[in-house]
């Protein structure tokens, strides 16, 4: 069992959890993820590693509630335990001195940017971090990312903080203005990552995106996470999760991610009521 040492909602529907998982923390590297099973009957679900403390043996995840499995996770509290946490999985990001590295993060992807920013900066890169959120109240990790980057730019869709627009707009403007960006790494929803690839393609800037297909085992033995990159089939869990945005078959990824949308809605419709006020009574009633 993996104890949750701290869990809190740091922005609307953005939950940060610090979990005791020493085997994962010991080997975690930027770009990798873990697979979680909240309880023995839950699904196996992947989450990007945002941060870790090798000495304390803890990992930090940022989770949004978007369905049944994440709902189960979000309802846990500090002090509860998760049944299974396995990782770090996936191929770590190449961390080298590239020059100027632009990291783009949206929604849960903002959290994922943290460890990459630190590692890229330590490797001697100039780190430009661009984070986007719908509105100012959805931004988080500002201070941490400010410290980890050479330049931090915030964007909001409604213009309530920072630049109005998307993170990819900022990158596009910089490229159009002739700024040198040697590598772009984008983590966010499929739409945002797809746009990142579209924006950088005419400039020929290598862009890596963290693909998020449905996963089952996460260790390369089932192929549920198949994606097509450069006309070849890859497994996102062992060949990825980061791939070249310019080579990804986005249409296929969109549709494969919707494979179980009917079942997902049925599952959430059947969920018991959530008694925030009297959780113990609710659990006893539902047992």
């Amino acid at each position: 069992m993996f104890e949750i040492l701290d869990k809190r909602e740091i922005a609307p529907n953005i939950h940060k959890a610090v979990i005791h998982a020493p085997a994962v923390a010991k080997k975690a590297r930027p770009g990798q993820f873990v697979i979680l099973m909240v309880d023995e009957r839950a699904e196996r679900v992947p989450f990007t590693l945002c941060d870790w403390d090798r000495d304390a043996g803890t990992i930090t995840l940022v989770v949004q509630e978007v369905g049944q499995s994440t709902r189960k996770f979000v309802l846990l509290n500090t002090g509860d335990s998760i049944a299974h946490v396995v990782g770090p999985l996936g191929v770590p990001l190449e961390i080298e001195r590239f020059g100027t590295v632009a990291l783009a993060g949206g929604c849960y992807g903002i959290g994922a940017t943290l460890c990459t920013a630190r590692a890229m900066k330590a490797a001697g890169n100039r780190v430009l971090t661009v984070i986007e959120a719908d509105s100012h109240y959805l931004h988080y990790f500002r201070d941490e990312l400010q410290a980890a980057s050479d330049e931090l730019i915030q964007t909001t869709i409604d213009g309530s903080e920072g630049i109005k627009g998307h993170s990819v707009d900022v990158i596009k403007q910089k490229l159009e203005a002739g700024e040198t960006i040697d590598r772009v790494i984008a983590v966010g929803c499929v739409f945002m990552m797809m746009l990142a690839g579209n924006v950088t393609k005419p400039f020929g800037v290598k862009t890596l995106v963290a693909l998020n297909p449905i996963m089952l085992d996460g260790t390369g033995m089932c192929g549920a996470c198949r994606v097509t990159v450069g006309n070849e089939t890859k497994f996102a869990c062992v060949d990825g999760p980061f791939f070249d945005a310019h080579e990804v078959d986005w249409d296929e990824l969109w549709d494969r991610r919707a494979a179980y949308s009917d079942e997902e809605i049925h599952a959430v419709a059947r969920t018991e009521i959530i008694d925030h006020h009297r959780p113990a009574a609710a659990r006893a009633r539902l047992a």
Partner: peptide, 9 residues
């Protein structure tokens, strides 16, 4: 829409 726990857009 995405079936999120909290509507933020």
């Amino acid at each position: 829409p995405l079936k999120a726990g909290r509507t933020i857009g």
